[in-house]
Simulated scan of single mutants.
Amino acid sequence: MGIKVSTIELKEIDVIQLEDGTFEKRFINVKKYPAFLTNRALATGRNMGITKTSLITELILIQGLLGPEDDIDTENLTTEQAEAIDFSRYLPVIYLGIIGANKKLDLSYDDFLDQYHGDFEETLNDYIALVEPYISQNPNEFKKGLEQSTKKKRKKAKRK
Rank of each mutant, 00 (worst) to 15 (best):
Y95D: 06
N125C: 07
D126H: 11
R154G: 13
I128G: 07
T7V: 11
T53R: 13
I135R: 09
S6C: 08
M1N: 08
S54F: 08
L65G: 04
P34L: 07
L107Y: 05
L18K: 15
R89Q: 11
L146K: 12
D106E: 08
K156S: 10
L59G: 05
E83K: 15
K104W: 09
K52F: 11
N102A: 05
I16R: 14
L77P: 04
G21E: 08
Y127P: 00
A101D: 03
D73W: 04
L59K: 05
L130N: 03
Y116R: 01
A129F: 04
K153Q: 14
L91I: 09
K32H: 13
G21Q: 11
G49P: 07
K144V: 01
K153N: 11
N125I: 07
A157S: 08
E58Q: 15
Y109K: 00
V30P: 01
K25F: 10
Q17V: 13
P34K: 15
R26W: 04
S54Y: 10
I85T: 14
N102S: 03
K160A: 12
L42G: 07
A129D: 06
L65N: 09
S149Y: 15
D119T: 01
Y33T: 00
I13V: 14
T51W: 05
I85P: 01
D110H: 09
F112N: 01
L61V: 04
Q63H: 12
F36D: 00
T7K: 15
L10R: 06
D119K: 08
Q17W: 09
I16V: 14
Q148K: 14
F142A: 00
Y127H: 04
I60A: 07
I28H: 04
I8L: 01
K153S: 13
I85Y: 14
N140L: 09
Q81F: 12
D126A: 14
P68D: 07
Y90Q: 03
E121Q: 10
K52G: 06
T150N: 13
V131K: 04
L77M: 14
I98W: 06
K104Q: 09
E12F: 11
V5F: 08
D70S: 09
E121Y: 08
K4D: 05
I72E: 03
Q137G: 10
T44V: 09
Y116P: 02
G21W: 15
I3K: 13
T123Q: 05
I13Y: 09
D86K: 13
G100D: 00
I3D: 06
K31A: 10
G145D: 02
Q148V: 14
N39E: 10
I60E: 06
D111M: 09
T7S: 11
Q81K: 11
